[in-house]
Computed example of a mutant assay.
Amino acid sequence: MTHLFRVLRQALALLALSTSMAFAQSAPWPVKPVKIYVGYPAGGLADVMARSVAQLMSESLGQPVVVDNKPGANGNLAAEFIAKQPADGYTLCLCSTVIESVNPFLYEKMGFDPLNDVLPVAATGRIQLFLVTKPSFPAANLNAFVAHAKSQSTPLTYGSAGAGSSPHLLAEMFKRSAGFSSTHVPYKGAAPAIQDLLAGHTDYMFDPGLSIPHIKAGKLKIYAVVSGSRSAVLPDTPTLAELGFKDLDYDTWFALYARTGTNPAIIAKINEATNKALADPSLKARYRELGAEGVPMSVSGIKAIATRERTAFGQLIRELNIKAD
């Protein structure tokens, strides 16, 4: 009798669990505001991107999507925060894919596991990088630029948004591929790096879009786009791949991340709402002003990008022994 009672009790427990799971999967979401923490300062490109997407997501989801900033450690602080929140889809972060592809190699200690504690749920856009110099730089095209760089007894200098940033890593990959030497000058962000290039304190840089108005005004000269496709803003500028550097076709990607364990149905809703926002004409126009592009993408597509970055950049960081500033 005792055995029968135990079997019945276990059966009832399993029934209750399955009923609870079925209810959780069918329960409406969202029923309260969704919060997006941006891993970078207010007013920056990622912040503007988050607020543009959030406004349109609110309309699709029927709940406010609130944006806040939690900058620091190249996006790590925001990702660590959501990794410690409930896996219910109400707390997300917007970070670059570098939190899982680059940061693990740059930082000796991270307060979360980027490959197991968080997962990308929707791409929010990509930023293309541009190889730019001063107008007075004595080279009319990329071949001439490389030839000039090789001829110098003192290496050229290039600025970047900081050690381990995408502009830094791609500049290192480019000079290796082209076969010349140059000296890295790291800055606390792309804006001061651009200002020093304009002032003539450095020779060139790989810029994430801030150079566009200066290029159009004739204050900077552009040689190439570091991407798999040409820029919609500067369509006459060839890509590095078109100019013979076949493996240098990387972009800086941003994505919404959720805590691992979030219900797949909720992830699908976030992905769908984000992709719908990226297709909106007003958002496309806003992104174009920023030199950005929204590319609707599946979760597996984002993971594939991060995996490719991790393989290429991780090896480079180890070889050069790059550490976070």
Results as ranks from 00 to 15, higher is better:
Ile215Arg: 09
Met205His: 01
Leu210Gly: 11
Leu198Gln: 03
Gly200Tyr: 04
His214Asp: 15
Ala199His: 03
Asp196Pro: 00
Ala193Trp: 00
Lys188Asp: 15
His214Thr: 14
Ser211Ile: 15
Gly200Pro: 04
Lys188Ser: 13
Gly189Pro: 07
Phe206Tyr: 09
Gly189His: 07
Pro192Arg: 03
Gly189Phe: 06
His214Gly: 13
Pro213Met: 12
His201Pro: 08
Gly209Gln: 12
Ile212Thr: 13
Ile212Pro: 12
Gly209Phe: 10
His201Ala: 15
Val185Met: 10
Leu197Phe: 05
Tyr204Gly: 05
Ala190Cys: 08
Met205Cys: 06
Tyr204Met: 07
Lys188Leu: 11
Gly189Leu: 06
Thr202Gln: 15
Ala193His: 00
Ala199Arg: 04
Ile194Pro: 02
Leu197Ile: 00
Asp196Asn: 08
Tyr187Ser: 06
Phe206Ser: 09
Asp196Gly: 01
Gly189Thr: 05
Met205Glu: 09
Gln195Val: 00
Ala199Glu: 01
Ile212Cys: 13
Asp203Lys: 07
Leu210Asp: 11
His201Ser: 15
Pro186Phe: 05
Tyr187Trp: 06
Leu197Asn: 01
Thr202Phe: 09
Tyr187Lys: 10
Asp196Ile: 02
Asp207Lys: 05
Gly200Gln: 04
Ala191Cys: 07
Pro208Tyr: 03
Met205Val: 03
Leu197Val: 00
Pro186Gly: 02
Gly209His: 14
Ala193Cys: 04
Asp203Cys: 06
Tyr187Val: 03
Ala193Arg: 01
Pro208His: 08
Gln195Glu: 07
Ala199Thr: 00
Ser211Met: 13
Pro192Asn: 01
Pro186Asn: 05
Lys188His: 14
Ile194Arg: 05
Gly200His: 04
Ala193Ser: 08
Leu197Ser: 03
Leu198Cys: 01
Leu198Gly: 04
Ser211Arg: 09
Gly200Trp: 00
Pro208Val: 05
Pro213Val: 13
Ile212Glu: 09
Pro192Ser: 02
Ser211Gly: 15
Pro213Ala: 11
Gln195Ile: 00
Ile194Gly: 01
Ala193Lys: 02
Lys188Pro: 12
Lys188Ile: 10
Tyr204Thr: 07
Thr202Asn: 14
Phe206Leu: 11
Ala191Val: 12
Ile194Met: 05
Ile215Met: 14
Tyr187Gln: 09
Leu197Cys: 05
Gln195Ala: 02
Thr202Trp: 09
Tyr204Leu: 08
Ser211Tyr: 11
Ile194Thr: 07
Asp196Val: 00
Leu210Tyr: 14
Leu198Tyr: 02
Leu210Pro: 14
Ile215Ser: 09
Pro208Ile: 04
Ile215Gln: 10
Pro192Ala: 02
Met205Tyr: 04
Ala191Trp: 10
Pro208Lys: 08
Val185Gly: 06
Pro208Asp: 07
Tyr187Ala: 04
Pro186Ser: 07
Ile212Ala: 12
Leu210Trp: 12
Pro213Trp: 10
Gly209Tyr: 11
